[in-house]
């Protein structure tokens, strides 16, 4: 997990599980990254996320809103497949407004 704080563009990489098991810790990291970012932009790298569940999804929403409430912009980038799957399933790609790979929804 890499972190750089007190810079114009803060960035945070999340790796491994982005789930209920890691939610407590990741919430703090996300808030820290946002709060300590002096500039206006935060980038969260999701390329190393191996698993994500509802808890992870909630944190993404929370982080986005928290940044917005401070007048900062937060972007999720390099979404891993599990993240894309989830956003796709919940139809939330639009909510985050981040560029994601367009994939056709799996239809059952």
């Amino acid at each position: 997990m890499s972190e750089s704080t007190e810079t114009a563009t803060a960035s945070l990489g999340i790796s491994g599980e982005f789930t209920i098991f890691t939610a407590g810790e990741l919430k703090h990291r996300l808030l820290d990254t946002i709060d300590h970012c002096n500039g206006g932009a935060i980038e969260i790298d999701l390329s190393e996320v191996s698993e994500i569940d509802s808890a992870g999804l909630q944190l993404m929403v929370m982080a986005k809103r928290h940044a917005t409430s401070q007048g900062k912009t937060l972007h999720f980038c390099r979404h891993s497949d599990p993240v894309l799957d989830l956003l796709d399933l919940c139809d939330l790609a639009g909510f985050f407004g981040d560029p994601v790979l367009i994939r056709s929804r799996q239809q059952g």
Partner: peptide
């Protein structure tokens, strides 16, 4: 989902 600090990350 509550705002940042109030949110319980383990709550749904």
């Amino acid at each position: 989902i509550p705002g940042g600090p109030e949110m319980d990350p383990e709550c749904c």
